[in-house]
């Protein structure tokens, strides 16, 4: 039996009148005697079947993150001044410089963390939001995996922000050499934080709601 076919009959918490606590994992009855959803008896957190307003919040944070991402890429993130020679670096030009002069291996890592990971987050979360809204049963396991990947790699985008911060603190040789942070790095930091919040607000259970897998 294929994984997909096998999973068809697995009972879900909502069908059994149960709720799993988001915080501590405690299995709780969905409603108490009065028919109200209560707090988790073990950790005291509010229980909910799905994260509240998942679509609205995720969309809002994702769009905000994207708006920050534009200046983060267009504006320079770092200024290098040496002997009156001023050089402004964007995220992409930093990667190129590392590739040409330093180590290509590290350039690939920085490229993944600073450019691929944010793009992955926008595309993946956007796809998940649209496909879940329509209740699609397309590639559910793969989409679930995609969400877990986004959660796992999300915070590594902070890499470039820390590089700029460390270089600014280290390169302080007055007229001879100086590194300054430029506004792009602030926007980039905000992009990372906003997209991290966006992926936290999304509820992967929504992938499995909607249309049942076809029975045949």
């Amino acid at each position: 039996m294929s994984q997909e076919a096998m999973s068809r009959h697995l009972p879900r918490a909502a069908e059994l009148g149960l709720i799993g606590c988001h915080v501590c994992g405690q299995v709780c009855r969905a409603v108490d005697a009065d028919g109200d959803i209560q707090a988790c008896p073990r950790c005291g957190s509010t229980l909910h079947r799905r994260k509240p307003a998942a679509y609205t919040r995720t969309w809002a944070l994702l769009i905000a993150g994207f708006l920050m991402y534009i200046p983060a890429n267009v504006l320079p993130i770092m200024r290098t001044a040496s002997l009156g020679d001023i050089d402004d670096n964007t995220i992409l030009s930093g990667v190129v410089e590392l590739w040409v002069k330093g180590s290509p291996g590290l350039a690939v890592i920085v490229f993944c963390a600073s450019i691929m990971v944010p793009m992955l987050k926008f595309l993946a979360l956007g796809t998940l939001l649209i496909s879940c809204r329509s209740g699609s049963n397309w590639a559910r396991r793969q989409r679930a995996k995609l969400y877990r990947l986004v959660e796992l790699v999300g915070y590594w985008s902070m890499l470039d922000v820390f590089v700029v911060a460390l270089l600014t603190a280290l390169v302080r040789f007055g007229y001879f050499s100086l590194v300054e942070p430029l506004p792009g790095v602030v926007f980039f930091g905000l992009t990372v934080v906003l997209t991290m919040f966006a992926s936290m607000c999304f509820d992967p259970r929504l992938i499995w709601d909607g249309k049942e897998d076809s029975d045949d």
Binding site: S82, E97, L98, K101, G102, S103, L106, I109, V110, A113, E151, G154, Y155, W156, M158, L159, D160, V161, F162, V163, A165, L166, L167, L170, V171, S177, M196, M200
Partner: peptide, 24 residues
Amino acid sequence: GPWTMSEVFVLGALVSIVKAHLYF
């Protein structure tokens, strides 16, 4: 949850060192 980033900073330090090594 994911809000502790020391491991990212270590990688950042590595990248900074490689970049700085070109001039210093």
